[in-house]
């Protein structure tokens, strides 16, 4: 699919200033995190369908098998439920698996082990068991991938106690959050977005952590708060750029992790702006935006000057066709239009 690469390559990202540090691609940043941790901790291992093939998970796992050997970096049978269970058991018995899936859609096959087992093990075992497991996947968009290759399932898993959920938006975070996820003693899901994979950023060498549960302000402004994660932030900032002639400025919150969620950064920002737009790549109903919106309504009601708004996917399966997809996927225009309405209220 050469045209899919073209689509991602055509995305406009700000080129990082090399005077600020070492410039590295997104997938290379993930790759470096894995190298750092495989080097640092002999109990870490990496598995997944195709982690050692020439595509190497968009480059994230490239060269790992050659460097660390096949017992620690290996391809798996096509057995999502079984292999998720294998990861749970391996994590319970002294290792730290990092389990790669091409797409979150395939994680749905493994909900039994993820929801019925991994997430509950610490609680049901009365604290006697830890499951230090990382499950990685990249949300798809475009290329006719359709309803079974483009789903963003973070909303489905947000209400499962015992899981953690990471959605990075920059190469720096992708590396630092991966390291934190591997070192965490709980099952951690990392949902990347396929459209971030060609992004470049400043990424320090070696070991560093970005803590789970700590959001960051990507921009500061006065009129509203735009909150989200991952790919949605790129779209939100382009929307804000379009609106800058109108003088609208916003706090842009990157939660970095949806579970645990940094409530403080949101509530603090709302004290100042009083307006909230939540953006997500998943579905609206019972989803990430709904939860964050409810949190704001419960804990910041007196600060709000306007109804909370959300931009996410409507409740339809993700269509495959190019034109159809444009109607349902969040984009800068939809976000800009929501911002305008919100600021007029």
């Amino acid at each position: 699919m050469p045209w899919d690469e073209g689509l991602v390559n055509s995305l406009i990202y700000d080129e990082p200033d090399p005077r600020l540090g070492r410039v590295l691609g997104y997938a290379q940043a993930v790759n470096e995190a894995l190298q750092v941790m495989l080097e640092k901790d002999p109990s870490v291992f990496v598995l997944g369908q195709g982690v050692d093939d020439p595509n190497a998970m968009f480059g994230c796992t490239k060269g790992l098998k050659e460097r660390f050997g096949s017992p620690r970096v290996f391809d798996t049978p096509l057995s999502e439920d079984g292999m998720m269970g294998v990861c749970v058991g391996a994590a319970m018995n002294g290792t730290r698996p990092v389990y790669f899936h091409n797409r979150p859609d395939f994680i749905v096959l493994a909900f039994n082990q993820l929801v019925n087992h991994a997430s509950k093990m610490s609680y049901m075992d009365n604290g006697q068991t830890k499951v230090p497991l990382v499950v990685w996947s990249a949300i798809g968009r475009g290329w006719g991938s359709g309803g079974q290759h483009s789903q963003a399932i973070q909303g489905m898993l947000m209400n499962v106690p015992g899981l953690k959920m990471v959605m990075p938006s920059t190469p720096f975070d992708a590396k630092g959050l991966m390291i934190s996820a591997i070192e965490d003693n709980n099952p951690v899901l990392i949902f990347e977005h396929r459209w971030l994979m060609k992004q470049k950023g400043i990424v320090p060498e070696g070991y560093y952590r970005v803590p789970l549960g700590k959001g960051i302000l990507r921009r500061r402004g006065k009129d509203l708060t735009v909150a989200g994660t991952s790919h949605t932030l790129e779209m939100a900032m382009r929307a804000l750029d379009k609106l800058s002639p109108e003088g609208i400025t916003a706090d842009v919150i990157d939660f970095r992790t949806l579970k645990p969620l940094d409530e403080d950064i949101l509530l603090e920002s709302l004290k100042k702006t009083g307006r909230l737009l939540v953006v997500d790549t998943g579905w609206l109903t019972g989803g990430v935006c709904a939860e964050i919106g409810c949190l704001a309504a419960e804990k910041a009601f007196s600060d709000l000057k306007a109804p909370i708004r959300r931009v996410a996917q409507p409740d339809v399966p993700h269509p495959a066709g190019y034109a159809l997809e444009q109607y349902v996927y969040p984009n800068p225009d939809k976000i800009a239009s929501s911002i305008q309405k919100l600021c007029g209220e």
């Binding site: 294998v86 058991g89 391996a90 994590a91 290792t95 698996p97």
Partner: peptide
Amino acid sequence: AIVAGAVPITAGMALAAQLL
């Protein structure tokens, strides 16, 4: 309590024993 839930988990424990 999930039928066969224990089966892959045990395989994983065995994999960890083998790796370590």
